[in-house]
Amino acid sequence: MPVRRGHVAPQNTFLDTIIRKFEGQSRKFIIANARVENCAVIYCNDGFCELCGYSRAEVMQRPCTCDFLHGPRTQRRAAAQIAQALLGAEERKVEIAFYRKDGSCFLCLVDVVPVKNEDGAVIMFILNFEVVMEKDMVGSPAHDTNHRGPPTSWLAPGRAKTFRLKLPALLALTARESSVRSGGAGGAGAPGAVVVDVDLTPAAPSSESLALDEVTAMDNHVAGLGPAEERRALVGPGSPPRSAPGQLPSPRAHSLNPDASGSSCSLARTRSRESCASVRRASSADDIEAMRAGVLPPPPRHASTGAMHPLRSGLLNSTSDSDLVRYRTISKIPQITLNFVDLKGDPFLASPTSDREIIAPKIKERTHNVTEKVTQVLSLGADVLPEYKLQAPRIHRWTILHYSPFKAVWDWLILLLVIYTAVFTPYSAAFLLKETEEGPPATECGYACQPLAVVDLIVDIMFIVDILINFRTTYVNANEEVVSHPGRIAVHYFKGWFLIDMVAAIPFDLLI
Rank of each mutant, 00 (worst) to 15 (best):
residue 5 R to F: 07
residue 6 G to P: 06
residue 7 H to I: 08
residue 10 P to G: 13
residue 17 T to K: 12
residue 19 I to N: 01
residue 19 I to K: 03
residue 20 R to N: 08
residue 22 F to K: 05
residue 24 G to Y: 07
residue 25 Q to F: 06
residue 26 S to R: 13
residue 30 I to A: 01
residue 31 I to S: 01
residue 31 I to R: 01
residue 34 A to M: 06
residue 37 E to P: 12
residue 40 A to G: 14
residue 41 V to T: 08
residue 43 Y to I: 01
residue 43 Y to R: 01
residue 44 C to L: 01
residue 45 N to S: 14
residue 45 N to L: 01
residue 45 N to P: 01
residue 46 D to F: 02
residue 48 F to T: 01
residue 48 F to H: 01
residue 48 F to Y: 01
residue 51 L to A: 03
residue 56 R to A: 07
residue 56 R to M: 03
residue 57 A to T: 13
residue 59 V to Y: 01
residue 59 V to T: 01
residue 63 P to D: 06
residue 63 P to N: 12
residue 65 T to D: 05
residue 65 T to C: 10
residue 66 C to T: 01
residue 66 C to F: 07
residue 66 C to L: 14
residue 67 D to E: 13
residue 68 F to L: 01
residue 69 L to A: 01
residue 70 H to D: 01
residue 72 P to W: 01
residue 74 T to L: 01
residue 74 T to S: 01
residue 76 R to T: 08
residue 78 A to E: 10
residue 80 A to S: 13
residue 82 I to C: 01
residue 82 I to D: 01
residue 85 A to S: 11
residue 87 L to P: 01
residue 92 R to Q: 08
residue 93 K to Y: 07
residue 93 K to G: 09
residue 97 A to K: 12
residue 98 F to T: 01
residue 100 R to H: 14
residue 102 D to M: 01
residue 102 D to T: 05
residue 105 C to F: 09
residue 106 F to V: 05
residue 111 D to W: 05
residue 112 V to D: 01
residue 113 V to R: 10
residue 115 V to K: 06
residue 117 N to W: 06
residue 118 E to F: 11
residue 120 G to Y: 06
residue 121 A to S: 13
residue 123 I to Y: 05
residue 127 L to S: 01
residue 130 E to W: 06
residue 132 V to E: 07
residue 135 K to P: 07
residue 136 D to Y: 05
residue 137 M to Y: 09
residue 138 V to T: 14
residue 142 A to T: 13
residue 148 R to F: 06
residue 149 G to V: 14
residue 150 P to V: 13
residue 150 P to C: 06
residue 152 T to M: 13
residue 152 T to N: 03
residue 153 S to C: 07
residue 157 P to E: 06
residue 159 R to H: 08
residue 160 A to E: 15
residue 160 A to C: 09
residue 163 F to K: 15
residue 164 R to E: 06
residue 165 L to S: 14
residue 166 K to C: 06
residue 167 L to H: 15
residue 169 A to V: 01
residue 171 L to C: 12
residue 173 L to Q: 13
residue 174 T to K: 14
residue 175 A to R: 15
residue 177 E to F: 05
residue 177 E to L: 06
residue 180 V to E: 05
residue 181 R to T: 12
residue 183 G to E: 05
residue 184 G to P: 14
residue 186 G to V: 09
residue 189 G to D: 05
residue 190 A to V: 13
residue 192 G to F: 01
residue 193 A to P: 05
residue 193 A to D: 12
residue 195 V to P: 06
residue 198 V to M: 05
residue 199 D to W: 01
residue 200 L to F: 06
residue 201 T to F: 05
residue 203 A to V: 06
residue 203 A to C: 10
residue 205 P to N: 14
residue 208 E to Q: 09
residue 210 L to E: 06
residue 210 L to P: 07
residue 214 E to D: 13
residue 214 E to R: 08
residue 215 V to A: 13
residue 216 T to V: 05
residue 217 A to D: 11
residue 217 A to N: 06
residue 218 M to F: 06
residue 228 A to H: 12
residue 230 E to F: 06
residue 230 E to T: 07
residue 237 P to F: 07
residue 238 G to C: 15
residue 243 S to N: 09
residue 246 G to M: 06
residue 251 P to C: 14
residue 252 R to H: 13
residue 256 L to K: 14
residue 257 N to A: 06
residue 257 N to Y: 11
residue 259 D to Q: 03
residue 262 G to V: 14
residue 264 S to K: 08
residue 264 S to W: 14
residue 265 C to R: 12
residue 267 L to K: 08
residue 268 A to R: 14
residue 269 R to T: 07
residue 271 R to N: 13
residue 272 S to I: 07
residue 272 S to K: 12
residue 272 S to M: 09
residue 278 S to Y: 09
residue 279 V to Y: 13
residue 280 R to M: 14
residue 284 S to L: 13
residue 284 S to N: 07
residue 285 A to R: 11
residue 287 D to N: 14
residue 290 A to I: 06
residue 291 M to I: 04
residue 293 A to E: 08
residue 296 L to N: 06
residue 298 P to W: 04
residue 298 P to K: 09
residue 300 P to G: 07
residue 305 T to G: 12
residue 308 M to S: 12
residue 309 H to P: 12
residue 310 P to R: 07
residue 310 P to Y: 13
residue 311 L to Q: 05
residue 312 R to I: 07
residue 314 G to E: 09
residue 315 L to H: 14
residue 316 L to M: 08
residue 316 L to T: 09
residue 323 D to E: 14
residue 323 D to P: 09
residue 326 R to E: 09
residue 329 T to I: 06
residue 330 I to Y: 14
residue 331 S to I: 01
residue 333 I to W: 07
residue 333 I to Y: 09
residue 335 Q to I: 01
residue 338 L to A: 11
residue 338 L to P: 15
residue 339 N to Q: 06
residue 341 V to Y: 04
residue 345 G to T: 14
residue 350 A to H: 13
residue 355 D to F: 07
residue 355 D to E: 10
residue 356 R to K: 15
residue 357 E to K: 09
residue 357 E to V: 09
residue 358 I to T: 05
residue 359 I to Q: 05
residue 361 P to H: 09
residue 363 I to K: 07
residue 363 I to M: 12
residue 368 H to N: 11
residue 374 V to L: 12
residue 375 T to D: 03
residue 375 T to I: 09
residue 376 Q to W: 01
residue 377 V to T: 03
residue 378 L to Y: 03
residue 380 L to V: 03
residue 382 A to H: 12
residue 382 A to Q: 15
residue 384 V to N: 11
residue 384 V to Y: 06
residue 385 L to K: 09
residue 386 P to S: 03
